[in-house]
Design a protein around this nucleic acid. Sequence first.
RNA 1: GUGAGCAUAGCUCAGCUGGUUAGAGCACCGGUCUGUGGAACCGGGGGUCGCGGGUUCAAGUCCCGUUGCUCACCCCA
Length: 419
Amino acid sequence: MPQAPKGTRDIIGEDYQAFRYIIDTAERVIGSTGAVHIETPVFEETAVFEKAVGASTDIVRKEMYTFTDRGGRSLTLRPEGTAGIVRAYLENGMKVWPQPVRLYTYGPMFRAENVQRGRYRQFHQIDYEAIGSADPLVDAEAIALLVKILQELGLTGLEVKLGSVGDPEDRKQYNAYLRGLLSPSLERLSKDSKDRLELNPMRILDSKDQKDQVLLKELRARPMLDFLGPEAKRHFEDLQKYLKALGVNFSIDPSIVRGLDYYVRTAFEVHHARIGAQSALCGGGRYDGLAEMLGGAHVPGVGWAFGIERIAIAMEEEGFSPSAEAGPDLLIVPLDEKAREEALALAQQLRPKFRVEFLYTTKSPRKGLEDALKRQATFVAFLGEAERSKGVVTLKHLARGSQEEVYAQELAAKLGARI
RNA sequence: GUGAGCAUAGCUCAGCUGGUUAGAGCACCGGUCUGUGGAACCGGGGGUCGCGGGUUCAAGUCCCGUUGCUCACCCCA
């Protein structure tokens, strides 16, 4: 028998309830900022990600689901949301809208990684992007918004880690500095970090390998923050000032290193201690050069994405249990064969004002009642010969035990009145 | 891509050092109970023991491979 592909899963029942709750909460809080919902395609031209995310990144090098369609086009299932949204900004001429344009979306992302707790091949993100302003106030709003959502979801034990990767020039200098510093000790670096020295030396800072950390300490490696140019530095300081004024708790973490090429200046992550090794609930930052990488004008932007599955794990760890799905307002129980189609007709008549279910097989009142209790129905209605001869249904309120015979025309009023 | 541990009914699991037709609880369906409350009792449907190969008179049990899950590395959500 076929199974759901590795790293994918069916979301149903309590999982779905939690999922829904997270999305609804996020949507409510984001919506209150005036940001508008956008849906972008789940797949894009492969070039969108190659240009934006960066050819040297892990995502592009080995994690993309790329395929060729029948027209010979190379397409890729989106591994992240920002590139597609910026593409949509350019394509729809949003530069003539009031700036910055604030957009949000949620949906599936795809990365061909090996699976572990909190990491899936199809996972779901809620994305927020503010495009068209370089003002650090916009960064501050984005971060504050994110914290607000997590608070609304009832999460505690969160840590906001803030850093800056500087402007591209700053980073170039910093990478040159790191290469100069570490190359003489190349042999002492971990295997992964030897590769990093070529591709993106900054990522060595983030290494969990003790060898690398010891070496960095020994050589007194300076942090990226020391290399910020005056403008990036000012931006970083203003952002901190705004966040403090807003009462947002954060810690400066010089090792925050984005794995995507498009980030400049602001970079941040939100971590939760109890969800395993994949502790990042949310990551984001500023990407002022992204639109240009895609071939558009220079358009600054900042945004973040959080992983719905990881939020769900964190909430579960904190004892949140999703409320069960509500039962129907009314369950109709046909007592004889003829009542089966009468039950359907009655259900149709009451829908969609009420949530109405009926049994597809005849049952005794006793069994029907048991069924209604299992479904957590509010009312149960019996339809049988006795009712038919009088033109009524027997309506019973489960919780109260009250029961009466009701004409079909009165039924809606009775259900609404909750006898 | 790498490493470790796991895989028996829809779910949670039992199944001894290999030995008849593979079990339990829960869930589902029916009966006791064709007209009224989740009970109880009785009965029923459900399994290619993840899949493939091997060893053996005999494999759920041992060996190899494979797929999936869990956790970790890399990286990230």
